[in-house]
């Protein structure tokens, strides 16, 4: 702004932009999109150019799909101005599209085409696509089983942990009895209970639910408790002078004030419960993604393992995203929060 002077406009006769800045502008805005498109074309070509060293049925379709992505990247970023928020979002992610396209090309060439990486252990992209298309029902069943087990255990653990934490934080008598038990049992990794749990519980499902609940409950309890305990007495004083009864002090003062801590506990509990879920499914439960992984390893079906890993990662990440979305809704009053 400051470098613009009146004489510049007068000299050129009219407020006309010269060609060079226009081109620079275009390169800055759409150049990365074009690069992304090139990367994906390269990926498509790498699929179709050479013969596969193995026998995979989806190589051709994958190549076509790569060209489609390339086309979308090209037209999406160049024409972003006409696409509204979708165009803007695509432009913003264009650098990642470049990286992804390059990575996939390298992967394709290094596995399916020249087998630089030892083959059964490093399957090419098309074999993973093959898993998703041909083994979908089994994979979906596994996802469903995992989500069901995880959700049940997590909800039970979070609820019990929250209630226990509030009780310890609020009542000295409850604290006296529960605190030592918590200190003794809590730090034990929930997976250490696995052998016992599978013998003592009537079904492997109930045993795993218990273990997931245990893994969730400990951090939720401790953080809810410390949250309730750290509520400033001034809040209680204010509420009491305004006529608050003990139930009001718990429900409307202690719990809302402790919620930021509770969410840290829920986040930690989610992480440790994922670990328990996978181990439980690998050892005892005959369903779910952990079991699928174990089964795939037994058959040396490495592509299936990678496919299941990707799904698992999406699910865990999705669960944490959901938790943080809930937190952001409930804790809008907080100034700075942990980002995810």
């Amino acid at each position: 702004m400051s470098t613009y002077s009146l004489s510049d406009g007068l000299a050129s006769g009219a407020p006309r932009l010269s060609r060079a800045p226009l081109l620079a502008n275009w390169v800055r805005e759409s150049g990365v999109g074009v690069l992304a498109s090139i990367a994906w074309v390269a990926f498509g070509l790498s699929c179709l150019w050479w013969e596969d060293v193995g026998d995979w049925s989806r190589t051709h379709s994958l190549g076509i799909a790569a060209f489609v992505v390339a086309a979308v990247a090209l037209f999406g970023t160049v024409g972003a101005d006409y696409l509204g928020s979708a165009g803007r979002a695509l432009r913003q992610r264009a650098p990642w599209l470049v990286a992804l396209g390059a990575f996939l090309t390298l992967w394709e060439v290094a596995t399916a085409k020249f087998a630089w990486l030892p083959l059964p252990f490093f399957p090419p992209p098309q074999s993973i696509v093959e898993v998703y298309t041909d083994d979908l029902p089994k994979l979906l069943d596994s996802v469903f089983a995992s989500v069901k087990l995880q959700l049940g255990g997590y909800l039970i653990g979070a609820t019990v942990g929250f209630l226990t934490g509030v009780s310890i934080g609020w009542s000295r008598a409850v604290g006296y009895w529960v605190h030592p038990v918590l200190r003794f049992i809590g730090p034990l990794p929930a997976t250490a209970w696995l052998p016992i749990a599978f013998f003592t519980f009537p079904s492997s499902w109930s045993a795993s639910t218990f273990l997931i609940a245990l893994a969730t409950g400990f951090p939720v309890t401790v953080l809810t408790w410390s949250g309730v305990a750290s509520v400033s007495n001034a809040y209680y004083d204010v509420a009491r002078t305004l006529g608050a009864k003990p139930s009001f002090l718990v429900l409307k003062v202690a719990i809302p004030a402790a919620l930021p801590h509770v969410f840290v506990g829920l986040f930690m509990g989610l992480g440790s419960s994922f670990a328990v879920l996978v181990v439980a499914e690998m050892i005892g439960v005959k369903a779910g993604l952990g079991w699928y992984l174990q089964w795939a390893q037994g058959w040396a079906a490495y592509a299936n393992m990678y496919a299941a890993l990707i799904v698992m990662s999406l699910l865990c990440s999705g669960a944490i995203t959901l938790l943080f979305a809930i937190r952001d809704r409930l804790l809008v009053w907080q100034k700075g929060t942990v980002k995810w």
Binding site: S232, V238, T241, G243, P256, L259, W333
Partner: peptide, 19 residues
């Protein structure tokens, strides 16, 4: 305590989670 005698403290001690 009774709401007929209300205290305003040195710190406002508003509840941050309430509008």
């Amino acid at each position: 305590p009774h709401p007929s005698r209300v205290v305003v403290f040195q710190d406002p001690t508003l509840f941050p989670w309430r509008s």
